[in-house]
Design a protein around this nucleic acid. Sequence first.
DNA 1: GCCGATCGTCGAAGCGCTTCAACAATGGGT
DNA 2: ACCCATTGTTGAAGCGCTTCGACGATCGGC
Lengths: 329, 329
Amino acid sequence: MVTINDVAQHAGVAASTVSYVLSGKRTISETTRARVMASIRTLGFHPHAGARALASNKANVIALALPFRQGMHLPVLMQFATAVVTAARAADHDVLLLTADEGAAGVRRIANSAMVDGLILMDVETHDPRVPTLRELDRPSVLIGLPASADGLTCIDLDFTGAGELCVNHLAGLGHKRVALLGAPQAVYDRDTGFARRTRDGVLTAARSLNVHAVARPCEPTYAAVLRELTALPNVTGLIVHNEAAVDHALTALRTLGRRIPDDVSVVAICPDEVAERATPELTSVPIPATEVGQRAVELLMSKLDGNTTASVTLLTPRLTVRSSTGPA
Amino acid sequence: MVTINDVAQHAGVAASTVSYVLSGKRTISETTRARVMASIRTLGFHPHAGARALASNKANVIALALPFRQGMHLPVLMQFATAVVTAARAADHDVLLLTADEGAAGVRRIANSAMVDGLILMDVETHDPRVPTLRELDRPSVLIGLPASADGLTCIDLDFTGAGELCVNHLAGLGHKRVALLGAPQAVYDRDTGFARRTRDGVLTAARSLNVHAVARPCEPTYAAVLRELTALPNVTGLIVHNEAAVDHALTALRTLGRRIPDDVSVVAICPDEVAERATPELTSVPIPATEVGQRAVELLMSKLDGNTTASVTLLTPRLTVRSSTGPA
DNA sequence: GCCGATCGTCGAAGCGCTTCAACAATGGGT
DNA sequence: ACCCATTGTTGAAGCGCTTCGACGATCGGC
């Protein structure tokens, strides 16, 4: 292994000088800097992460706690993860992967071992058992999702209530009077996962204020279940689907029931653009801005690591893209 | 922060004794061990990962390089990842997440900084640019997938050739004489990704030796593309689908074309059980044993970290589960 | 032409842990 | 009763890096 001393010797300077060249925490003459950099390159020097963490009290690593739970749509999760890793790397940090298995204990272990400087928790539930642990730990952290109380925490998420409202507004604007929300599986509501409920609340609230009749139905993502639900809702002319795995099934089921899109029923989905664009017909949709959420989460965390305080809750404004699955009532 | 010295003082022993209690590398009397453990618990001591890495020259962290590329089925990727993290934790290691963005440079950086003890690369292509880097780095590593040459490497994967053969054998055994493989998007073959080609080869080889007529078609996972392909194959009575995102589309398309499953056409899919079971009808399938591959990959890596040598290629035997989508010709 | 500031560099201390050599205290074997 | 092994514990060295205080050199101001 090539150490900072090897570099120093090769460049004819002190080890501390090499360190300062690398960190920029002291002014270094241009000539020295160039000489050191050259030595670093020829020797192929990479600082030892452990030594660095020990001496500087910073690991330059953040933890990402992914849930891997049933009912979450995995591609979106991956988008989050990719965005987080990419953004973290841009800020010179690496990402340690944590799964739900270890739960609160894992969070505690990682934080106490000084292995990470901060953490990002994904898919936070309304009553998430990891949140109390996080509070007592006082390591900088960012939550994706909204727990019951965000006091003293930093949370970020899509404004799902707003997304639900947006869908209803769009349909109401087209003249639809009877709409339905095809939601997540019952298990997701039972688990108290915020985003599913918030969407439902948004839909119902907006419908009430616009004098639109709305029903919200949980739904398993199987063709049979979707068909059953849609068969039971013959009068609905506007359908909001907030369940990615059920989107294709819903389209097939409507086709089977002889209901044309958008002539007989307008469909708007809350799902990634990718899913909306691949469907036939292409779906009017409110995308979940996974990449943006991931990036913002990292930004917030880095800001906290720099000692800044941040807003306790950041809600991203939902946007609706009109495609060919919605039309006048 | 509570250090090993705090623990030592609290327990009335030397710091080295605490270290030996933790590592078990020296015999310690039961009474001392108990006293030390008690102190550790009361003080809430967690060893500093950086210090440990520095002193012992082991980070107890492995890197997992995920591709996040188009054409990979993400839920399977997540299964891999979960299995890897879980297995690694069981072996007292954490997992650092690497994405494809950084490519070979990322692999080099991580390895040289002593941040990880070994690496697992997922979705390795036939001519993967990371492989040469890995070779010169000489850190223990395990590849999931098969590069052109596995010499001196440790690779593990499902035997996709065998999976293709297995599907054809099953269909031929039911009396089918004309079969088709609906494969991955063209881009995946172009990229020289091994698994797609190996499946195709297995299908074609088995068909030839069983005197079955077979065609293999790449396919985009859109309803329109799938419908087009299936319309162009009116005589086929056995369909093999190796493209998870296209599975549902294929079933819908067959239904639309008025071809009943399994009466008119038998369908066998190479996909996770989850997808096969959710489909209507439930699909005869060859699952990709993501969890097992992940576990085995970690086992192999741990073995290498312990200084053992391992087989250069491990291929897992595919298994076919018969469900209701296949029947006699 | 002298003094204080500024700039660039250095040496040494120390981060928290592991591990090695060494030593004290036992416990048979003879 | 003596010696040698074994067992249990210790102190100290050192892993590779950052950072602090110090020091010589350069420079502008009077």
